[in-house]
């Protein structure tokens, strides 16, 4: 049955600013039917209780993603490992401060990004060049003195690899949340599908679909950046 429009007054205007008290949208943990292993919430709760296995599981789950975020901020592989390790230690030391354990991942990644920025700031204040090895400048100088030597080419290749790496990292980072971590594990860590699904507590079938989809999205993103290549 269709009720025709009446001449009654319109609904009251949408109230603004919105009070954030609508609680029917749950955390991600409760949304997926694809999970078979422990959720972040459970692992954080267990870690808070001192269970060593839970710390290890959180580490395995996010070490690739933390590395990726550290690199994204630093822009160079040097010091990435130090920042990534420090991020985990800081997160583990302050687990009690995390209000919502379902948000462990975004909290950990924020800690990582902040630590990387602190690191960059410290370096800048210390007056250290961000070309950490100085390899590029040294090679350029050497090549200028002795044209024809391969050092400059080597340095240029190195710089090009850095740029490609940054583009890959950026492309993985920009994937939707469900695809980011599996893609980081697959391409940064070279972990098998079975191991990724075990670490993430996901059904293997779900993981296979996500990797497949992540790969499609990555190729599409990188195709725009590498129009000349024959691999996409």
């Amino acid at each position: 049955m269709v009720t025709p429009a009446t001449g009654s007054p319109a609904q009251p205007a949408w109230p603004t600013p919105p009070p954030a008290d609508f609680q029917s949208t749950p955390s991600l943990d409760e949304l997926t039917a694809d999970e078979v292993g422990p959720t972040d919430r459970l692992l954080v709760t267990q870690a808070r209780g001192g269970e060593a296995q839970a710390f290890e599981s959180l580490l395995k789950r996010y070490q690739a993603m933390v590395t990726l975020v550290a690199y994204r901020q630093l822009g160079h592989p040097d010091q990435v490992e130090d920042v990534a390790q420090e991020a985990f230690v800081k997160a583990f030391m302050h687990l009690e401060d995390l209000d919502d354990p379902t948000r462990f991942k975004s909290w950990l990644l924020r800690i990582t990004a902040n630590l990387a920025l602190d690191f960059l700031r410290r370096r800048k204040n210390d007056g250290v060049s961000l070309d950490t090895t100085g390899a590029f400048a040294a090679a350029e100088e050497s090549a200028a003195k002795q044209p024809g030597r391969g050092d400059l080419q080597e340095a240029q290749d190195h710089a090009q690899s850095d740029e490609l790496r940054s583009q890959i990292v950026e492309a993985i980072y920009s994937l939707p949340e469900d695809y980011q971590v599996p893609a980081a594990m697959r391409y940064l860590e070279e972990v098998s599908y079975k191991e990724i699904s075990r670490r993430l507590g996901l059904r293997e079938e779900t993981l296979r679909k996500r990797i497949h989809r992540a790969n499609q999205m990555l190729r599409r993103k990188l195709r725009k950046l590498w129009p000349e290549t024959d691999i996409l």
Partner: peptide, 20 residues
Amino acid sequence: KISEPLKPKADFGSKVLRKF
């Protein structure tokens, strides 16, 4: 291949847990 320098080392986890 390009991501290789970012590959977490095998002892990454154990180092973190030791520092912790």
